[in-house]
Amino acid sequence: MAIDKVRDYLRRWNRDQDIMEFDTSSATVEKASEVLGVEPAKIAKTLSFKNGEEALLIVAAGDTKIDNGKFKETFKSKAKMLTPEETLSYTGHAIGGVCPFGLKQELPIYLDISLKRFDAVYPACGSSNSAIKLTCEELEEYSNSTRWIDVCKGWQEA
């Protein structure tokens, strides 16, 4: 199971026991927010995109949407999300549990600056009913992210 792979992965930081598992689904930002009792923006959603013949992951705040112009400027290609089947194939995690930990293969991982406004965020942990509370610094370290980027919209005040 993917959650076991994530648990093994997070063990190197002694954080495997901090994974929360729920009796109900946390597969969407709304469901995760409800089960955790936090605002939707604090859910760190992991989005999977095509990048030529490869894939990349972007972890962003739950209240954001990808800004196609910023994406194209950053990655020099159009934002095209992976299908659920492709996501599972690349990451080893099914939609609803995709996270930047314990991946099936090494992928470039980017963190969107929309997350930086929070002391703690909640990414999934490989299943549709799991999460972990992390600081942005921990998320950056544990995900082995490539860099922070600015490719989202809808979260900044006008």
Results as ranks from 00 to 15, higher is better:
residue 105 Q to H: 06
residue 87 T to K: 01
residue 20 M to H: 14
residue 126 G to I: 04
residue 130 S to L: 03
residue 71 F to G: 04
residue 21 E to C: 12
residue 145 S to A: 15
residue 119 D to K: 13
residue 118 F to R: 01
residue 21 E to M: 12
residue 129 N to D: 10
residue 92 G to A: 02
residue 129 N to H: 11
residue 143 S to E: 04
residue 76 K to F: 11
residue 76 K to S: 10
residue 81 M to W: 00
residue 34 E to N: 14
residue 66 I to V: 14
residue 72 K to Q: 08
residue 1 M to N: 08
residue 78 K to G: 00
residue 25 S to E: 12
residue 77 S to R: 02
residue 151 V to L: 04
residue 39 E to I: 15
residue 61 A to R: 02
residue 90 Y to T: 06
residue 22 F to T: 09
residue 4 D to W: 08
residue 1 M to Y: 03
residue 5 K to L: 15
residue 153 K to S: 15
residue 33 S to W: 11
residue 142 Y to A: 11
residue 4 D to H: 14
residue 127 S to Y: 04
residue 145 S to I: 11
residue 122 Y to T: 08
residue 7 R to F: 12
residue 60 A to S: 10
residue 79 A to G: 07
residue 117 R to N: 09
residue 26 S to K: 07
residue 114 S to E: 08
residue 138 E to W: 01
residue 122 Y to E: 05
residue 19 I to M: 08
residue 12 R to G: 06
residue 68 N to I: 09
residue 34 E to G: 13
residue 103 L to N: 02
residue 75 F to D: 01
residue 147 R to Q: 15
residue 98 V to T: 08
residue 60 A to N: 01
residue 93 H to K: 04
residue 133 K to G: 03
residue 9 Y to E: 15
residue 8 D to V: 09
residue 115 L to N: 02
residue 91 T to N: 04
residue 99 C to F: 05
residue 136 C to G: 01
residue 117 R to T: 15
residue 10 L to N: 06
